[in-house]
Design a protein around this nucleic acid. Structure first.
Length: 503
RNA sequence: GGUUGGGUGGCCGAGUGGCUAGGCAGAGGUCUGCAAAACCUCGUACGGCGGUUCGAAUCCGCUCCCAACCUCCA
């Protein structure tokens, strides 16, 4: 098993050994949401994936600067680049009769709240597009100065055709063939377009009179193009060249391709060295889409208020469900799969709790079991090092859970492993559950510290039931068990006694 | 039509030349007053057709099907 970190680089379509630009430090940029409506569940998957990646990089000891933007201007509705096409934020502002910035703030707040619910860390820097208008104007100017931008009726377009002819550096990320792009007829444009070529894209747009969001620039009162903010802000906070750029797979083209072109076009520098793309969350085998009803909101998922699911699933169950697939694979959300995830999540968390509560009796001897456990510990790290393979890492953790349960049930003996191995096991498991996957324990089970009234109460009830059982008073004993079950508490009998968890 | 990635046992989902993925569901067993939980055992799956190879789910060719992107979307 390899113990060096490998990352699949979309740019080269290959897994590569990861080496940061500056030893010990990593700059990572992830394309954040456009805040014009409630968070989409797919966003949650992408940002949860990158949160685990962020956390794992830190777990490995790197100092990571994680930049994730908020796009609050420039993202147009429908077929873009035409004067008069509405900005998503502006449109929503008009519909809700609010200031554009109120819209941006409202949905940014909602986004943050959802990210908290999924127990993800905030990024180191969360820049907003509207907060970086001067930087974007400067980048437009640089692109013009380098000959890759042209003005047309107050708007500035990126001259993709010229960029392709001179650099051959367009289309690599998305696999588009340059010939195909160039072959696109200029007739496609008809007469209404200001663009010279269909592949050109706006980097600065002159604002229509009705447009609510507008800034002065050397060319017109207007606003920056959609792709520009990421190029400008990643450059500002991470430098002209940085380590990792991430985002959803659907941003690969044209967004990321254009970002690269802008970086090259403005400073002739390459931008990100490793491009990472998270794949789509599907439902019933197809991409979630609001337009055809094939969608579910995070809140609906939690409450069960949706025709697509039979009941609600907690945020951590949903997160666990996501971690059970690789970030580069599509994931199909189904009710059955969620039910399976719910049970799996509980098994994992119960296993962790049992393991953390174990005390080594001393006199542990190394042997086959000890060796096996140490192998598993190495393996779980190796799996994560292999392009953040969370499903495989989880599979290894489940193998450890089986061992832990066997130890607990007395089928295996703690004396067959060393004190050190138990400590390693506990640290590794805790590290993965708490620090890397960041799965919170929603069970609220009877904890060993037992200082809440609930714990005292449960101790009493369990004690009474134990007495009844000792007296073979099965009526009382079963009544306690059944009634507790009805209120959502499950009793678990074992040789060591009885414990409880919330159902 | 072009680009990219897929089709794995009942479901979800890893795996990329020989060696158990894992979770859930299902069957049998152990334990238990009975259950639950836990543990043990079990399915021998890789779209189809050819080819390469001692050996292929894994490589090559053909073919069928699916998804995403190509227009805003994580």
């Amino acid at each position: 098993m390899e113990n060096t970190l490998k990352i699949y680089n979309s740019l080269t379509r290959d897994k590569e050994v990861f080496t940061p630009l500056n030893e010990g430090r990593i700059g990572m940029y992830v394309c954040g949401p456009t805040v014009y409506s409630d968070v989409h569940l797919g966003n949650c998957r992408t940002f949860t994936s990158f949160d685990v990646i962020y956390r794992y990089l830190m777990y490995l000891g790197y100092k990571v600067r994680y930049v994730r933007n908020i796009t609050d201007v420039g993202h147009l509705e429908g077929d873009s680049d035409e004067i008069g096409t509405e900005d998503k934020i502006s449109k929503k502002a008009r519909l809700e009769e609010l200031e554009p910035m109120e819209i941006a703030q409202k949905y940014t707040n909602g986004f943050h709240e959802m990210m908290r619910i999924f127990n993800t860390l905030p990024p180191s820097i969360e820049p907003r597009a509207t907060g970086h208008i001067p930087e974007q104007i400067k980048m437009v100017q640089d692109i013009i100065d380098n000959g890759y931008g042209y003005e047309s009726n107050g708007s500035i377009y990126f001259d993709t055709l010229k960029f392709i002819e001179e650099t051959k550096a367009y289309g690599k990320l998305s696999g588009r063939k340059i010939e195909d792009l160039m072959a696109e007829s200029r007739d496609n444009l008809k007469n209404q377009s200001e663009k010279r070529h269909p592949a050109d894209f706006a980097i600065w747009m002159k604002a229509a009179p009705s447009h609510l969001m507008r800034w002065s620039s050397p060319w017109s009162v207007g606003f920056p193009g959609w792709h520009l903010e990421c190029s400008a802000m990643s450059t500002k906070y991470l430098g002209e060249t940085f380590d990792i750029h991430g985002g959803g797979n659907d941003l690969k083209f044209p967004h990321h391709e254009n970002e690269i072109a802008q970086n090259m076009g403005s400073c002739n520098c390459s931008g990100a060295r490793y491009w990472m793309h998270a794949n789509m969350l599907l439902m019933n085998g197809r991409k979630m889409s609001k337009s055809d009803g094939n969608t579910i909101t995070p809140v609906q998922l939690f409450t069960g208020n949706s025709p697509h699911i039979s009941k609600g699933y907690s945020p951590m169950v949903v997160k666990f469900f996501m971690l059970q697939s690789h970030y580069r694979s599509t994931l199909d959300l189904t009710d059955e799969a969620l039910q399976a995830a719910e049970k799996g999540y509980k098994r994992l968390m119960e296993g962790n709790k049992l393991l953390q509560g174990m005390k080594h009796p001393g006199n542990g001897k190394p042997g086959p079991l000890d060796e096996e456990l140490n192998k598993l510990i190495d393996q779980v790290h190796a799996e994560m090092n292999d392009d953040f393979n969370t499903p495989k890492a989880l599979a290894v953790l489940f193998e450890i859970v089986t061992k832990v349960n066997s130890l607990n049930a007395g089928h295996l003996q703690l004396t067959d492993l060393t004190d050190l191995t138990l400590t390693r096991l506990q640290e590794t498991f805790r590290g993965f559950v708490d620090e890397i996957f960041a799965l919170e324990d929603e069970g609220l089970a009877g904890e060993s510290n037992g200082d809440s009234p609930m714990d005292g109460l449960m101790d009493l009830i369990i004690d009474i039931r134990a007495e009844a059982r000792a007296n073979k008073d099965w009526g009382t004993s079963d009544k306690i068990r059944d009634v507790l079950q009805e209120v959502g508490i499950v009793l678990k009998d074992s040789k060591e006694g009885t414990s409880w968890t919330k159902a």
